[in-house]
Write a protein that binds this DNA or RNA. Structure first.
Ligand code: FES
Ligand code: FES
Lengths: 134, 134
DNA sequence: AATGAATGATACTATATTAGTATCATTTGT
DNA sequence: ACAAATGATACTAATATAGTATCATTCATT
């Protein structure tokens, strides 16, 4: 079980690096060398970040990616949403109707409480924070 | 992404029910009706709980399962270990060597901190607690 | 204008995890 | 003897994650 999947992690790492470059255009091949992430998947991730408006891209020779959103405004939670979708810590009652009474199910209640705490923490984590406390 | 898988959830639900039966022998078919969990998988789960020493079983006609461990001594965390193995919130650096410097990787550090909080919470959750606060 | 280095879009394969099923031997109360 | 139960084990299916491949398009450089 993992909270952060590789794509999210790759994205965070790439953004961290880009944030340090202050607007320089960086190609995926440079990032590849820098991060050691398999190139094709790195490209996939970068393309997605571009579509999401976090990076802007420049096509053609000498092209690449630039960070366009402020590091302080990029939350790890956002990246997780993008690459992992909305998450819920508990699935049991979603697909089926297992909770005899969803409203009173204590497992659900407790796990949900933990989930909320995690979300709260994730919502404080920005790329900027990750940079600072490196 | 889910913190608690179905098997863990089924186990918790089964144990909750058994805890309320105070030592009565309950067959998997009764539990099946009670919980609405697919029978074969419920059996698998119960058998596992038996092997783990949480239940004892009685074979043969009128056989079934009885809770043998105290509800206050059964932690949700234990069930997760049994059915999900040890978990870690972050995989990136495990298989590969992506963290340029594992010791200083801030992503790792932060996620680990969150993970520890979750573990701490899970370690307070017992079947007894789940019963009480239903 | 040609070239090559880059991204965009998309579809595909592989691997791992989770979920669920099936089978048959063994036990035991009636 | 029989039916109702578990033990053990192996199997299939579904889903999620990870990674690859392809081809069209763009554009600085020459
Ligand atoms: S029974 Fe699974 S969450 Fe309520
Ligand atoms: S780079 Fe992924 S955890 Fe350090």
């Amino acid at each position: 079980m993992s909270l952060i999947t590789k794509e999210t992690d790759y994205a965070a790492r790439a953004l961290l690096f880009l944030a340090k470059q202050k607007g320089r255009v960086v190609s995926s091949s440079e990032l590849d060398k820098e991060l050691g992430v398999p190139r094709p998947i790195l490209r996939k991730v970068l393309q997605r970040l571009q579509r999401e408006g976090i990076l802007i891209s420049q096509k053609g020779n000498r092209g690449g990616f630039t960070l366009v959103k402020e590091p302080k405004d990029i939350f790890l939670m956002d990246l997780m949403k993008i690459f992992q979708g909305n998450f819920s810590f508990l699935n049991c009652f979603v697909r089926d109707k297992l909770c005899a009474n969803v409203k009173t199910c204590s497992i659900r209640k407790h796990v949900y409480k933990i989930e909320q705490k995690v979300v709260r923490e994730l919502k404080t984590l920005t790329i900027q924070k990750l940079m600072r406390e490196n």
